[in-house]
Design a protein around this nucleic acid. Structure first.
Lengths: 152, 152
DNA sequence: CCTTGACTTGAAGTTGACTTCAACTTCTAG
DNA sequence: CTAGAAGTTGAAGTCAACTTCAAGTCAAGG
């Protein structure tokens, strides 16, 4: 498969594929002239990368899970640890969501008088809620996976 | 309060406080000579900022919620929308966590043979799991909120 | 032959939230 | 008075994950 084919099938832009290759996350099997040719196994690797990202791993971390051979080599205790981390995050987010929703419904004229909101604020102030994990911003529109495209 | 005092009480570094001031998120009430003097209400503002960040808002979004006067002016429908977003995120994360944990326990010799893991991979490949929201990295150690310090 | 379009490269740009730096001014203690 | 700690500034640097750009290569079609 050439780079455009991989891009079309996975929705991952060509620039990203080159970037991943440079980073050592995927390998292009050979070149036809200048052009990369990818083995179809790259599709699985990309899925793995996607999953790793969803689990909050950095690309560097993900790379360390991929054997040079291509087969994933995943430390189960690392998985469990990541799951724990994720659960902790979920717990915090759940609290925030709950508090947010409560504050949205709160009949108090100002949030300054809503006890639930105050409690949330206190939690935030004490550092119980860690910051910085971004929700996807609509300012960064990305191509989604292209549906198999019959038109071309 | 001077900047160091605020930093100590909130755990927010002085550099961040200046940064927030430049951004218009907090206001220093006056200057004593060159030095900023903060009203104690800045503590509440910082808590609000912290909460906003935990809810996934950008600093710009947070600023738009803070009236020049200092009192929060929060659109309830925005809160509800953010809560919805959060819930969706929580749902995805829960799926990933579950899958991760299952894969960690999976008795198959390689994850290639674990059906749960395969399912996760498929979901990731299809874009059902969105990317990019970072868990706090230990490479970015931060001061935590200092306990009320009696020593000074 | 020559254009067009898909691909190649390395380098530089982007974004958000900060941090770090250099150079400078002030306050306080000795 | 003087040192040093702590404050000030604007500008530049950092980080991650990409994207964009300029400039170049190559195959195919008219």
């Amino acid at each position: 498969m050439d780079i455009a084919e991989v891009a079309k099938q996975t929705g991952v832009p060509a620039s990203t594929l080159r970037f991943y290759e440079k980073k050592g996350l995927i390998a292009s099997l050979s070149r036809e002239g200048l052009r990369r040719r990818f083995a179809s196994s790259v599709l699985d690797e990309l899925a793995l990368i996607s999953l790793g990202q969803a689990a909050g791993l950095s690309l560097d971390e993900i790379r360390s899970m991929i054997l040079p051979g291509g087969a994933p080599n995943i430390d189960r205790s690392l998985l469990a640890a990541k799951a724990d981390e994720l659960d902790a995050l979920i717990g915090r987010l759940t609290a925030v969501s709950y508090g947010l929703r409560h504050a949205a419904d709160c009949p108090a004229p100002s949030h300054a008088e809503c006890p639930t909101f105050q409690k949330l604020l206190k939690a935030a102030a004490s550092g119980a809620l860690e910051r910085r994990w971004q929700t996807p911003t609509d300012k960064a529109p990305r191509k989604r996976a292209a549906k198999p495209d019959t038109s071309s």
